[in-house]
């Protein structure tokens, strides 16, 4: 039948165009990256190896073109990639001792209360903030986190790695060169692996079993990021650190996350939070190190705030479509009755 043939042509051409401007164009603009990996040791070993391979390829490419300047740049990049690979592998090798140690929670409590509470509050255990957020942000660049929920938000391995060397664990060592140091010192130089393991065990022992999505967001993200749509009337959902301090610390003001669930989408957000460097090389955003459950809660919260009508949309859609199918059926019946006389 002729009309169906014409329809097929229209549909096929429309789909080709759609494919070209949507899935195909996006695949070209946003190259594929490795999936989320919550095993941070494995992730770091793989990505540093991939970075070396990429640098080697770039060097080979430059050598093929015999471009002196490009070769020199590529050689320097490769050198840096090799150095970093060595550093990060040695770092995770060193973390092994603490990860495999049998921890002592009581000793951990003594260590944490002696070492950490000068800068960090643990409100649930009666250690209040010694200074308010604005003051700690002024002193350190960013408001310091309460440690009560750390054992819930982060895995044991990540906490050990972070206490040992915060800059390496959170993948921001590129920011702390030329004598600049991460505001939190590296404890690998001051404590034995056993002591690090004890501290982490203590943090895990005091962590709450359940947290709301909002609480996870507040503890994991809100020191730097606001999410103003969560409270437009009273404006209580800004970042804990004052804009000026956090801007100075990060190089630019971290964005408000109100619409990130739409502008970035859950897939990108998951990969980005899991390893910001993978999608935005050189970014000042740290790998926060959230475990799977916490990361999913953060993304859920962004959806609750940024796409609050999703459930309503998904519920209403099918009803609209059913109504329209009925309309179309009646329209076809009417058409058939009117055209019977003229054919």
């Amino acid at each position: 039948m002729r009309e169906l043939k014409i329809l097929a042509v229209v549909v096929v051409l429309t789909l080709i165009t759609y494919w070209g401007v949507e899935p195909f164009a996006h695949s070209q603009m946003h190259p594929h990256v490795d999936p989320v990996n919550y095993n941070f040791e494995e992730s770091d070993r793989t990505t540093s190896k991939e970075a070396v391979e990429k640098a080697q390829k770039a060097l080979a490419e430059a050598e093929k073109k015999a471009d002196e300047k490009a070769i020199k740049g590529a050689k320097a990049d490769l050198e840096a990639a090799l150095t970093f690979e060595k550093t990060i592998n040695a770092f995770w090798d060193a973390n092994k001792a603490a990860i495999t140690a049998t921890p002592n929670v009581a000793n951990g409590e003594a260590l944490v209360t002696a070492n950490c509470t000068a800068c960090h509050s643990i409100e649930s255990k009666g250690f209040p903030k010694l200074m308010d957020d604005a003051s700690t942000a002024g002193a350190y660049g960013v408001a310091t986190p309460d440690l009560g929920s750390a054992g819930k938000l982060y895995s044991k391995d990540y906490l050990i790695a972070f206490i040992n060397n915060p800059a390496l664990a959170s993948k921001v060592s590129h920011k702390f060169t030329d004598g600049r140091a991460h505001p939190m010192p590296s404890y690998e130089l001051m404590n034995t692996p056993q002591e690090i393991a004890d501290m982490v065990a203590y943090l895990q022992s005091i962590a709450p079993k359940e947290m709301t999505n909002k609480e996870v967001f507040a503890d994991a993200c809100q020191r730097c990021h606001g999410i103003k749509y969560a409270d437009m009337q009273k404006g209580t959902m800004g970042a804990f650190s004052p804009d000026a301090d956090i801007k100075k610390y990060m190089g630019k003001l971290p964005p408000d996350l109100s619409q990130y669930i739409i502008s970035r989408g859950p897939d990108y957000l998951g990969k980005f939070i899991n390893n910001p460097q993978k999608l935005l090389e050189g970014t000042a955003m740290p790998r926060v190190g959230l475990n799977q459950e916490s990361q999913e809660q953060v993304i859920k919260y962004l959806e609750e705030i940024g796409a609050s009508k999703k459930a309503q949309r998904e519920e209403l859609g099918p009803k609209f479509l059913i109504y329209l199918v009925i309309f179309a059926i009646f329209a076809f019946l009417w058409k058939a009755s009117k055209w019977r006389d003229v054919h």
């Binding site: 076809f332 009417w334 058409k335 009117k338 055209w339």
Partner: peptide
């Protein structure tokens, strides 16, 4: 007569269009 055919085509179009409105709008 003419409008009856248009409405039939419109019915199909509206199903397509509202599907996009609810479920496939980011394009």
């Amino acid at each position: 007569v003419f409008i009856s055919k248009d409405l039939a085509v419109l019915g199909v179009f509206l199903i397509f269009y509202f599907y996009l409105v609810f479920f496939h709008y980011s394009f």
